[in-house]
Amino acid sequence: MTTNTATTHIARGSQGSRLPVPALISLALIGFILVAMETMPAGLLPDIAAGMGTSEGTVGLFVSAYALGTVIVTVPAISLTRGFRRKPLLLTAVAGLVLANAVTAVSTDVAFSLASRFVAGSFSGVIWGMLAAYAIRISPPARSGVALSIMSIGAPLGFAFGTPLGAFIGAATDWRWAFAGLSILGIAVGAAILAVVPDAAPVPAATRLPLHKVLRLRGVPIILIIIVVWMLAHSTIYTYIAPYLRATQTGITPDLMLLVYGLASLVGVGLTGVFLDRYPRALLHLSAGTFAAAGVILIIGQASTAAVLVAAVLWGVAFGGTAPQLQNSLTRAGGDNADAANSFLPVAFNLAIFGAGIFGAALLTVNDGTILAVAMAALGTLTLGLTFCGRRSAFTAS
Rank of each mutant, 00 (worst) to 15 (best):
T2F: 10
T2L: 10
T2I: 14
T5R: 09
G13R: 11
S14L: 09
Q15T: 14
L19A: 08
M37K: 12
G43D: 02
P46G: 10
S55Q: 04
S55T: 05
L61V: 14
S64E: 11
S64M: 12
T70Y: 13
V71P: 02
I78K: 04
R86I: 15
L90G: 05
A93F: 15
V94Y: 02
A102D: 14
A111G: 10
F112V: 12
A115E: 08
R117Q: 09
V119F: 09
V126K: 06
R137F: 14
L148Y: 02
P156T: 08
T163Q: 02
F168W: 14
G181T: 02
G181Y: 00
L182F: 04
I184G: 04
G190K: 03
A192M: 15
L194W: 13
A200V: 12
A201G: 14
A205S: 14
A206K: 10
L211S: 05
K213F: 13
V220T: 04
I222W: 01
L224N: 01
I225H: 00
V228Y: 04
M231Y: 07
T236S: 07
I237E: 00
T253H: 07
D255R: 06
M257L: 12
L258F: 02
L258G: 02
Y261T: 04
T272G: 05
G273K: 06
L283C: 11
G289N: 10
A294W: 02
I297L: 07
A306E: 14
A306G: 11
G321M: 04
P324W: 02
G335L: 13
N337Y: 07
S343C: 05
L345N: 05
F349P: 07
L351T: 07
G357W: 03
I371F: 15
M376I: 11
M376C: 10
A377T: 11
L379R: 01
G380T: 09
L384Q: 00
G385T: 12
F388S: 01
